[in-house]
Amino acid sequence: MNCQTTKEQISQLLDNELRAEELQPMFQHLSECEECRKFFLQTKDIHDSAKTLEYITAPKVIDQKFAVLGMEQQQSFLSRKFTISVPSAIYSIGAVIVLMLFIYVSGTIQEKQIAEQYRQTMSLTMPYGASSYDRN
């Protein structure tokens, strides 16, 4: 293990990107090499401070620009929503037609049932019922 490799690994260690199997040889070298220990401390020190660097606040003018952009986008989204709603409107109309067809079909079935019941009642009440009449 040479110094160059160890220093590169120190950089990766600080980024949590060093593979587990590389840890042991790296620490072994660090325990033996003063120069790499110095590099480790200095690099870690700068890394710890750099992580605390703050953002620079964006000027307000950018907010205004974004607000205008938002309004334009709202309109384009609305028009897009309309195009999306066309197929669902077709679905809804189709569903209503099928529903009406269903009501109509079940209605005619009911009518047939009423007619059948009427026929049965008639054959019971009339001695020369519809059955004998049918035979002719």
């Binding site: 953002y55 620079i56 964006a58 000027p59 950018i62 897009r80």
Partner: peptide, 20 residues
């Protein structure tokens, strides 16, 4: 999906980071 509120929240979340 067209929720502009979410878009403007993403903007607020990242505007200072991007500007910096």
């Amino acid at each position: 999906n067209g929720n502009l509120h979410s878009g403007s929240f993403l903007y607020s979340r990242y505007k200072n980071g991007i500007y910096s």
